[in-house]
Design a binder for these strands. Structure first.
Lengths: 246, 246
DNA sequence: TTATCCTACTGGTCTGACCAAGATCAGACC
DNA sequence: GGTCTGATCTTGGTCAGACCAGTAGGATAA
């Protein structure tokens, strides 16, 4: 009943995790810094090494820290790829989460395209144009087509020059691309699909070129809405009897 | 020198993690299932218990699994709230990017308010109304006022009924509230501030009530823009010589 | 049949140990 | 004197066995 671990009232793992989180959030531990050794950390916090390892492993899967064999533990620049892990698991067991995440993606992209209208440079325009061209070229290929589609949308976010939006977007994209392929196949049969894909993206591109945030946002938003509509119809088996471009 | 660990060529942790991931992704382990005990897992995979714990802890922070003290480890329903941990860490290390994070917040809220127009129920409306009232009541208090402001915006996101948007928003809000207070104090001196705060939020509220996504989005967006403008002026020391309501 | 108690089991943690390999520095060699 | 080499220290990676504290369920007593 010593007051040793009652210091924070936390259990061992929590104690270590909280200790590290504190410094991480406060900024006293920045990317590139090397943590003190596991043994030191253990004695410092009055816990055993396995517990310290649990905490470090936890931070590792969160992409906050990297444990380098025989070197030490260093703080890394957070990497979105972690989210891929999560989404992979999550998606496997809960497909209904897709629509919800999609909403977040729409949010990010619509904001990104507004910023892009203001901040995009020549290189961004060129990247968009290349992606647009690729969409046209791969219009008949489900796989490559999906990739081209993704690259276009990715280019929009990149053009926003916002690190945060970029991070958020790529984390969602990882999850969504999985479903994208099947969705695309589902929708492949619609003749009007090609027109929709090409024209829509071209209109979006033009709005960015025109540096018109309102139009770009609206066009992109409509693009997503139409995509949803297509998918909805494909699900109910409504075989192409519309141009659905409104 | 048994062929113990050569089984997969993976290190201990990886072995356990991969083992569990496999069953998780394959679906043989579904939410609600209870894993075999740590000890069994350890002997089964030929690793020590601390290693098993590392893997379980890893899955825990990923929100895939829940370790219940003295009960066992059970598979949980994946929950987006894990992302909160990640984003909190990730965004914290880019403190210089508060404006950038703010862009993401705008993105989330503007999307949320659109969804809210469609999905909000009576309870949501009431929550918004209460928050709105509180903004009026606390208009002269920097601290409580900031809190009320936050609650209103939070209510918008809640009304979207999107778990993902909600999680993203709260991780950002956590970071932004810090700066919010100082911002608010900075701006406190402006007489026209009160009008801006009250009227703007009321207009936003009305747009949601009217279930008009476009208007709501536009109004909210303008609200953010004006807030930015105030802050900008406060920084350059331009003491209130405008109504700035355009 | 019911209520209580005991025991096996579970997670939570610690101790102390061994291994392999990078880091470091002293001493040998050029 | 400078460079190279090797022993040693340190670090992560892992293991084995142990103890605690509750929980669940079977055995036992009422």
């Amino acid at each position: 009943m010593e007051l040793k671990r009652a210091a924070e009232g936390e259990k061992g793992f929590e104690k270590v995790f909280a200790f590290l989180r504190e410094r991480l959030l406060a900024g006293s531990l920045k990317p590139g810094d090397r943590l003190i050794s596991e043994r030191e950390l253990a004695t410092l916090l009055g816990v055993s090494r396995p517990i310290v390892r649990e905490a470090l492993r936890a931070l590792t899967v969160l992409g906050i820290v990297e444990i380098r064999d025989r070197i030490g533990t260093v703080v890394t620049r957070p990497d979105v790829s972690v989210l891929n892990d999560f989404f992979t698991f999550a998606l496997a067991q809960q497909a209904d989460m897709l629509d919800d995440v999609m909403q977040a993606r729409v949010a990010i992209e619509c904001q990104a395209i507004r910023l892009a209208c203001d901040r995009a440079n020549i290189a961004d325009f060129e990247r968009l144009q290349r992606a647009l061209a690729k969409i046209g070229e791969t219009i008949d290929e489900a796989d490559a087509g999906g990739m081209a589609d993704f690259e276009f949308h990715r280019a929009i976010v990149v053009a926003s020059h916002s690190e945060t939006l970029s991070v958020l977007h790529s984390s969602m994209a990882g999850l969504l691309t999985h479903s994208h392929r099947s969705r695309r196949e589902l929708v492949q049969g619609f003749p009007s699909m090609k027109t929709y894909l090409i024209d829509d993206h071209r209109r979006i591109f033009e709005a960015v070129i025109a540096r018109d945030p309102e139009r770009a946002d609206a066009t992109l938003r409509k693009h997503f809405a139409i995509g949803d509509e297509y998918r909805r119809r494909a699900v109910v088996g409504d075989i192409d009897k519309t141009s659905a471009s409104g």
